[in-house]
């Protein structure tokens, strides 16, 4: 089974669209993130690297999404919904089996 890169590229958009998600942060390493962010800032462009991280292993993929959420709903509801959306998307795309989907709630914005 081969991986469909297009379905991975769409993960950022997919996660951002999940109700309750207020922000999507890069899930990669700090150094890579800062470097990318700096280069992007210098070039005045939108971040280039996908924010949702996908690690491919022999037995399948491991996906990590780091999000910020709004005040309306609980962390569990929003992060659970993000998990479900990613799982459904990868299943539809006929991708390698999913080993794990990690959803990290890194910020909760209580005020608007």
């Amino acid at each position: 089974m081969t991986t469909d890169p297009a379905s991975f590229d769409q993960l950022d958009i997919l996660v951002r669209r999940v109700p309750g998600v207020a922000a999507l942060y890069p899930a990669g390493s700090i150094v890579a993130t800062v470097l990318t962010a700096t280069l992007d800032a210098v070039a005045h462009r939108a971040p280039a690297a996908p924010l949702v991280l996908i690690d491919q292993h022999a037995d399948g993929v491991r996906v990590t999404a780091k999000i910020g959420i709004g005040a309306a709903e609980s962390s569990r509801d929003v992060s659970g919904r993000v998990h479900d959306a990613i799982a459904a998307h990868l299943e539809r795309g006929g991708n390698p089996p999913v080993v794990q989907i990690v959803v990290i709630v890194a910020s909760v914005r209580l005020s608007v």
């Binding site: 659970g80 990690v102 959803v103 990290i104 709630v105 890194a106 910020s107």
Partner: peptide, 10 residues
């Protein structure tokens, strides 16, 4: 397959 967390910082 789910591992959901909220950070201590959050």
């Amino acid at each position: 397959t789910a591992r959901l967390v909220v950070t201590e910082g959050a």
